[in-house]
Amino acid sequence: MPMPVFAIPFPVIDPVALSIGPLSVKWYGLAYVAGLLGGWWYSRRLVSTDPLWAGRSRPKPEELDDMILFVALGVVLGGRLAFVLFYDLQRYLARPQDIIAIWQGGMSFHGGLLGAATGLWLFAKRRGYPVLAMFDLAAAVAPIGLFLGRIANFIKPELWGRPAPGLPWGMVFPDAGPLPRHPSQLYEAFGEGLLLFALLALVVRLGGLKRPGLVAGIFGMGYAVARIVCEFFREPDPQLGFLFGGNVDALSGGVTMGMLLSLPLFLAGLVLVLRARRPQQMSESGSSA
């Protein structure tokens, strides 16, 4: 089949960023490392800026090394478990040994978020810090990792978009057929990454960290909206398709797992925002949640 007039061939990108003898470092792994380091650096700047917090208790910069460890473990365990349960349960029931084969791919953002929240809760309880302070801090830096992760999805490539014949920037991805598709990974990098980071940075600058739960709530709502919008351009997971509604053949309409999992995240964010707006939430004790 001839390539459509407006199709853009996928750029040839070596998935291996660096090779030293038998060892190779892939862009995908670098994205995770860079996301953690970027979040660590930005969080140190935030906790070191006293006027942003109005006296709220929060970790010291040197304690963030331990916090990142809790978060990283939560992301990996939660992201993998949620992917197994919600995205490909039948496969893993048939081959349970594959559950630990994380190097084969298969992570859920929503599960990783829940795992990270659990890690932050454990860290806060062990160190005696307010849980919402941990959530606000993590929410402010999370879009850094989201942006880099979606760029890694594009480079791999995986999680491409739905067919888009005639779209000027439609792209033909390897192993995705001859039709040009939405580069939905880049849409998500912009919406869930750059745009959400800018919004939260503005909220922080305007005093958002002084209201417990406000930054975390806006993150939850903002990510949910960005993810649901991008799901309209992203091809559903092949093993799931549309959960209901839509046309699988035409890849139009319908509800996807990503949309469904984003709804409770939006509601949780809304609850936090409404809670943060109450006047009594301006003060926070060292052990409150």
Rank of each mutant, 00 (worst) to 15 (best):
L199V: 15
G177D: 02
R278T: 11
A34W: 02
G112T: 04
W160M: 05
N247Y: 01
G269K: 12
A124H: 06
Y28S: 05
L77F: 14
A226W: 11
G220N: 10
E235P: 00
G286R: 15
L64Q: 07
V141H: 02
T256R: 11
R275K: 15
D249Q: 15
K60F: 10
A201I: 00
A289N: 11
L73A: 14
G111F: 09
S108V: 08
G208K: 01
A101G: 00
G170H: 07
S48F: 03
R275V: 03
A140Y: 10
F219L: 14
P51A: 06
D98L: 14
Q281A: 14
L46C: 06
E62M: 07
P174W: 11
A189Y: 05
G191E: 08
Q90M: 14
I20K: 00
E231Y: 04
G21K: 05
F242M: 13
V25T: 00
E62V: 10
A101I: 00
D237C: 01
F233A: 14
Y92E: 09
P157I: 03
L148K: 04
D88C: 01
I100F: 14
L202G: 07
A72S: 15
P2G: 06
G170A: 09
C230S: 14
L132W: 12
V76D: 07
F233G: 05
K156F: 13
L240T: 12
S288C: 10
G38T: 04
L214K: 09
E235V: 10
L137V: 02
V76Y: 00
V255A: 05
W103E: 12
R44D: 07
L23E: 00
G246T: 08
P96Q: 07
G78H: 03
L89W: 15
Y28A: 03
I151E: 01
V131L: 13
G220F: 10
G170W: 05
R56K: 15
F109G: 03
V131Y: 10
G207E: 04
N247T: 08
P212Y: 05
F109T: 01
A140Q: 07
S262T: 08
L251A: 15
G166S: 10
P279V: 09
G241M: 12
S48Y: 02
W41I: 10
G149N: 04
D66L: 09
V25D: 08
M257S: 11
R234N: 06
G112M: 03
P212L: 00
G35A: 14
N247L: 00
M3Y: 04
R211Q: 09
L122R: 11
A152G: 06
S252W: 04
A34D: 02
L18P: 05
